[in-house]
Design a protein around this nucleic acid. Structure first.
Lengths: 160, 160
DNA sequence: CCGGGTTAGTTACAATTGTAACTATAATCG
DNA sequence: CGATTATAGTTACAATTGTAACTAACCCGG
């Protein structure tokens, strides 16, 4: 009853987790990006920067990068755009003049207070699909998978 | 005990579902993309095309687009690359000479049989984080959220 | 059977994103 | 100190991706 060595398991894209994650993430991000752009003239990277600066003012660009899972170039570009539109203020740290000190301006804070209800409402509508207990389970699973994915790192980098 | 009308709920990026989905999807995709590129010289779009053609030969480009959640331009580019490297054969449908008939070549099938074990192994390692019952629950949740996200469409397009 | 509209796919161009090199400042160590 | 190395951030360039225009083939009503 053995299977020939050449037999391989089938792989249907629609059941393949990485594919499904990518499609879902894309659907959600595209929807939000459109809304952010239309209503607030913000890109997703810019929205992320605003979101962290609203909660933690005075961060450096590197610190923002850490908390937004963006690289420093993406942060630099997003901040440049936000500074141009008067939503973020850039200063230099007195103790280390390489480091920037980023804060939202009044206009930046206003964008934040206007966008948050939209963002949360979208999330609420999406999660309305799930019962409350399912929501917390799903959130926990995401945390675990994220940790695991980081541990796995560059897919079977050396092994397999 | 009422909250002032101006109070807004906080939004921490790290608890915001769209952000978390994006980060997880990105981590996973980056890992796989690196492995596909290094080991097989394939991009993710190319891998997707190979995956569906292996299971369903003879599809048109539009049909491939449907099943890979890619747009027709992305498919066109992926197929062009695969044709160049001799992994996909393009023919024209006799009944409709606009439509292409795409099939894997022997080399294309070989790539598929070599890449599938890697892809499934990566998925297995990721899902090893979850108990079997959690895995099926998670898969079901993804299906439901995907459906819901498509229904919601362009984030609160007109409403809110 | 022929003009208007439609569909499949490609090509051209614009915008975004990633990678690498660079500038300025700071830290380390002989 | 002064030379070397490291870090923060920007700029320049390459690659990817998205958008729009285009070509070729088909379809359909008159």
């Amino acid at each position: 009853m053995s299977v020939p060595a050449s037999a391989i398991r089938a792989l249907d894209l629609e059941h393949f987790l990485p594919y499904r994650l990518s499609v879902l993430s894309n659907t959600v991000s595209t929807a939000l990006a459109g809304a952010y752009a239309r209503r607030f003239g913000l890109s997703i990277p810019q929205w992320r920067v605003i979101a962290v600066l609203a909660r933690t003012p005075g961060l450096s660009a590197a610190a923002v990068a850490e908390r937004t899972a963006m690289d420093k170039v993406a942060v630099s570009r997003a901040v440049a755009g936000l500074a141009r539109s008067g939503r973020v203020r850039r200063a230099l740290a007195r103790s280390d003049r390489r480091r920037s000190v980023l804060t939202l301006t009044a206009r930046g804070r206003e964008v934040y207070t206007r966008i948050v209800p939209y963002a949360l409402e979208y999330e609420r509508r999406l999660l309305a699909e799930l019962a409350p207990s399912e929501q917390s389970f799903f959130a926990a699973v995401l945390t675990r998978l994220q940790r695991r994915a980081v541990l796995l790192g560059p897919a079977g980098a050396a092994r397999v």
